[in-house]
Computed example of a mutant assay.
Amino acid sequence: MRSLILTLTILFTCFGAKAQGLTGKVENHPKKEMDVVLMLFGMDNPITIGKVDPKGQISVNLEGVGIAGIPEEVRSMFMGELIHNFYFSCGEPSAFGEMSGKPALRQDFLRLTQGDQWSGTVFLVSDEKLRPWLEDSGYSNAVKGSFYEIIYVEEDLAINTTCSNQIIASEEETVDVVYEFDLELKKGFNWVEYEILEIHETNSEIRASFPSRVKVRNLKDPSTMKWIGAYF
């Protein structure tokens, strides 16, 4: 029994470590090596987390990545409250309780650079149909599936709550939406998965369909992730 417990502990530890480091393939990547960076603190302060090779093989790792090199005045300019650093916002600013105001910073898409030039963007989605919606949610319909982002926090935080908000669908209709948060955030950078569970269908002449129920959680299965590149 002790041997089984030890084996399971090692497996879960290895999975947790691997979850911080991901690999994949960016389709239609130009035949150039590029750095994968975060630009949470602006273009003048990129944080390198990996590379993509000339064949489009991408490798990124958040393990050990920090912000020690970012000047304090820059940090204070960009950092915000945890409650405001997710793609979806709760209607109540106090939805996370005492954790609502904890310092945090969100990175939506991965940036690709070559030298000092920002050369491309990588969207992380489970379904390519989510990309148009991420680029323009007003005119492109949402679909069920997951997309992935990165969040930085200054301390370990656990968020397990459900909150709501209201979205205006038309002059005559306001829709109640639900966001379920189940997150264990570690100090530093974390992968976050947004799973769209339900869609509110709209009149497309007024606005695009949008998510009405979403699960926000730690990345569980990296194999579902597609790496969609866009280049300048």
Rank of each mutant, 00 (worst) to 15 (best):
G66D: 14
E63K: 14
F78V: 12
L82I: 11
V60G: 00
P30S: 04
E98S: 14
M79Y: 07
M77S: 01
I49F: 05
D44T: 09
Q20E: 14
V60K: 04
I58P: 01
S100I: 08
E72M: 12
M39L: 10
T23F: 02
G80D: 05
Q20A: 11
G64H: 06
H84D: 14
I83M: 12
L82Q: 02
L22Q: 04
G64S: 06
F41A: 00
F41R: 00
G69M: 15
G42W: 07
Q57C: 11
V65Q: 06
M77Y: 00
G91N: 10
S94R: 13
Q57N: 13
G21Y: 07
S89E: 12
G50F: 10
K51W: 04
S76P: 07
D35N: 10
I58D: 01
C90Y: 04
V37D: 00
G56T: 04
Q20L: 15
C90Q: 01
G64W: 09
G24C: 11
Q57E: 08
T23S: 12
Y87R: 12
D44P: 01
G56M: 06
G69F: 13
P71S: 07
G69Q: 06
G50Y: 02
P93W: 03
P30K: 02
D53I: 10
E63T: 15
M34S: 04
F88K: 01
D35A: 10
K55Y: 07
V60H: 00
V60F: 03
Q20G: 10
V65R: 05
I70E: 01
K32M: 12
G50N: 04
E72A: 14
F88H: 11
A19C: 13
V74T: 09
F86E: 02
V52K: 01
E98D: 11
G69R: 10
P54N: 00
F88V: 13
G97P: 10
N61V: 11
I70S: 02
D44G: 09
G80W: 09
V74Q: 00
C90F: 07
N85K: 05
G66R: 08
F88I: 13
S100C: 08
K31L: 14
I67Q: 02
E72R: 11
K25M: 14
G24S: 06
A95D: 08
M79I: 14
Y87E: 10
L38R: 04
V74E: 02
F88W: 12
G69C: 07
P54D: 06
E98G: 08
G69H: 09
E63Q: 14
L38H: 03
F96R: 03
N28E: 11
P71Q: 03
V36Q: 00
S94M: 15
N45G: 05
E92I: 15
V26P: 02
P71W: 05
I83K: 04
G91M: 13
I47V: 14
I58Q: 02
G80H: 03
I49V: 15
A95P: 08
N61D: 15
G91Y: 06
G97I: 13
G101F: 09
G66T: 13
S94D: 15
E98K: 13
G64L: 07
I49K: 02
P54G: 00
S76T: 14
D53F: 06
